[in-house]
Design a protein around this nucleic acid. Structure first.
Lengths: 353, 353
DNA sequence: TTGTAAGCGTTATCAT
DNA sequence: ATGATAACGCTTACAA
């Protein structure tokens, strides 16, 4: 069973020693044209495929990196994964993609697996506080990069979004439309982006002189169902909001459903702005206004950083700017007598890839 | 750098031989309570983590399986991945998830990687015809399972959906609403599901006595942009359709956008039914009618099959039934004077998990 | 029950 | 330039 052709077989067939065969196959030191040809031919004829495990065992480099996302089913992370994977492939690294499923235990399970698999490095969108395994990784000096989220107390390069800017962009936009009561569907406080967006919301509300009402804040868990629940709670407030800001796309979708069930229509009765642009949002009816950054770029950058760390070069954290993409979901104005101050962009996201 | 604690260190610290240490750690043959305790303690104190590669090299079992999906960014495949991953974890297998990105070349790149990594088995949603690497895998008798899609000429267990049934369910539903001109947004003919759904469409159109017009068929590539293009083409027909059936969810989304851009409204001016249920579809306005099967179950079943093959037990292919979930996107009836014959289910999918 | 040693497929070292 | 041989970290006969 399986491919049991080893380098020994190749060497034998080529009439050289395994040493020479190895040298030819891994293209390292000098070899004669003759043996090069013989070995190549033998390898091809036999369908030889080197054993990555044996190779890694001996040479302490597996050329495999791991990417642990918090939820593969979240298009945002799927895009990150895609970007990272492509970048890895370009440098001929294999990516082992795994899914923590927003669960600390599963996160640890996979970290453990990566540790025992001796991958060359790990990119993670971490959950909660630093788990034991995360500490072990740092202590073992195994190359590690945070993407999208961070954990306090870790001195690890990261690629994140400028969350404060994103929130402010969203609120400035809504404020300019005359909204003063804006409901916030936040993420879990155990996640850095959840905290950052929550804090930024409070600051931004103050800065723009909007209503500062605890009833306008509801927390979710970055999954769609919680977005619906949160929206319901916000809409049931004594003085309900006229606009909603959702801290991620999945919760925005949940909110969408709840709003519809209440017989309201987004973009007419209620404005909605979501974090994270995903392919879909421009296609919906109405298209959804977002504050976003390219998830793909996030993933690519994270992988670039990781490969730098692996090769021993210094890597610096990157904070990507966020961008406001105005679509029709935030088209409804509150009565204040002003003229519209922004240009409506219908359909898919313009310009930026 | 890295965790360089080996079983030798553990053995030394525990005051036993490596043999004994190994036996304790992998819990195989009989060991004395004394040494068990010593070894356990030593391992814990040293933070010992076995090297999976060395272990696999020696024992010809890596406990790692690979899952190659055609597009991670497609929620349908993300769900499959999630299901498969959970099932693997339950049997303490690690899943290496990779993304072919609907690209034959990338598919081959990853298959090559899996081959050299010596995974214990592979689940794949294959592209196009059997590539060279796919043949190699079959010949090497490396455990292989197809999920969602198949490739002709391969004698490999598979888990697929009953596509013909799905199409027929959709058309029967639309026909009962009085529609006779139904536009089909198909998938690529190079993919088995694309072919199956296309053929089923033709048969089903005949069976229900619907308009058989070549202008009512447009092909896409299972990505959202192509859904928009296809919808545009269909709507530009001399006699445009009154209902649309999209062969996957991504293309349905693209169609959604195109329909909106044409100033039409789904569920009022045009009916829409999509293949593959995804969390979102029940939350949209209007909620989308689908023919679906549980992607998660598809993934779980595929992994179950794979593990069976790996353990040497015989595995039989599974065809999962599809189910029609009627929502408001197909609520608009064509004038035929009949009464509605189906119950409208608003909101998220009922019953089935 | 335990220690010793061979071997998994490679690469790296050291002669030649 | 090439051939022998040790070594990577582990499991598993085979003895004891």
């Amino acid at each position: 069973m399986e491919n049991t052709v080893t380098i020994k077989d190749v060497a034998a067939r080529a009439g050289v020693s395994v040493g020479t065969a190895s040298r030819v196959l891994s293209g390292s030191t000098s070899t004669s044209a003759a043996s090069r040809e013989q070995v190549r031919a033998a390898a091809a004829e036999l369908g030889y495929r080197p054993d990555a495990r044996a190779r890694a065992l001996r040479s302490a480099r597996s050329h495999a990196v791991a990417l642990l996302v918090s939820d593969v089913r979240n298009p945002f992370f799927a895009d990150i994964a895609h970007g990272a994977e492509q970048a890895a492939l370009a440098s001929s690294y294999v990516t082992l993609l795994a899914n923590a499923n927003e669960d600390t235990v599963q996160q640890d399970t996979y970290l453990e697996a990566f540790l025992t698999q001796r991958v060359d490095g790990i990119i993670i969108a971490p959950q909660g506080e630093g788990s034991g395994n995360l500490r072990d990784i740092e202590q073992a000096r195994l190359p590690l990069v945070f993407v999208d989220r961070t954990v306090e107390g870790f001195d690890v390069p990261s690629v994140t979004a400028d969350n404060a800017q994103g929130v402010d962009l969203a609120l400035a936009h809504l404020a300019s439309q005359g909204h003063t009561r804006i409901g916030f569907i936040g993420g879990p406080m155990a996640v850095s982006t959840g905290r950052a967006r929550h804090d930024a919301f409070l600051r931004s509300v103050a800065r723009h002189g909007l209503d500062d009402d605890p009833e306008l804040i509801a927390a979710g868990d970055f999954r769609s169902a919680s977005g619906g629940t949160a929206a319901a709670r916000l809409l049931a407030a004594r003085r309900p909001p006229t606009a909603l800001l959702a801290a991620d796309s999945l919760m925005a979708v949940g909110a969408l459903g709840e709003v519809r069930r209440q017989g309201l229509r987004i973009g007419r009765d209620l404005a909605l702005v979501a974090f994270d642009d995903i392919e879909w949002f421009g296609e919906l009816d109405p298209p959804i206004t977002v504050v976003a950054h390219s998830a793909r770029e996030l993933g690519e950058t994270a992988m670039r950083l990781l490969l730098e760390v692996i090769e021993g070069r210094p890597a610096e954290s990157v904070v990507l700017p966020m961008e406001l993409v105005v679509r029709q979901s935030s088209a409804c104005r509150q009565a204040t007598g002003e003229q519209p101050s922004v240009l409506l962009t219908p359909g898919p996201r313009p310009g930026t890839a």
